[in-house]
């Protein structure tokens, strides 16, 4: 399924990722989100979560380091997600997303297993 025009604008330079797992991630987060939230913001927030998940996977965070081009795409995913959140999310959600990435990267640096990324981000999306 193609991204909606709203999402398409946020996928500049990341278009190829949509069919390589980003779309599945996005739909998965969209389904977990509270239907009480602003319906116009939900897709953007779900995309922000999906970008984090795909971004850290591209980087190889917690596993074998990705080659430079994949790392840079991963970095862009995280940065794009962060910018989408500043445009669309409450401060609580922005902070919760950052804390989720801090937890995952801290676990990776320490050689510990972090909580599943999807659980962490689903909780971040629900932050109040």
């Amino acid at each position: 399924m193609s991204p909606t025009p709203v999402l398409e604008r946020e996928l500049d330079r990341l278009e190829a990722l949509w069919d390589e797992g980003l779309a599945d991630c996005y739909h998965s987060y969209l389904e977990t989100m509270d239907s009480a939230g602003d319906p116009e913001l939900r897709p953007r927030l779900a995309l922000a979560a999906a970008l984090v998940e795909v971004g850290i996977r591209l980087q190889g965070l917690g596993g074998a380091a990705a080659p430079a081009p994949a790392l840079l795409m991963g970095d862009l995913c995280l940065a794009r997600s962060s910018r989408i959140l500043t445009d669309s999310a409450t401060r609580a959600v922005q902070v919760a997303f950052a804390r989720a990435v801090e937890e995952m990267s801290s676990a990776a640096a320490s050689g510990r297993e972090a909580s599943p990324v999807r659980d962490l981000l689903a909780r971040a999306l629900a932050a109040r």
Binding site: G60, L61, A66, D75, L78, S82, V95, A98, S105, A109
Partner: peptide
């Protein structure tokens, strides 16, 4: 490289959190 990626991500996230806060 693995540690470098994690350190970069951690402080990228931490800095954005401090600013958001």
């Amino acid at each position: 490289a693995e540690r470098a990626i994690a350190v970069g991500d951690y402080y990228f996230a931490k800095a954005t959190r401090l600013i958001a806060e």
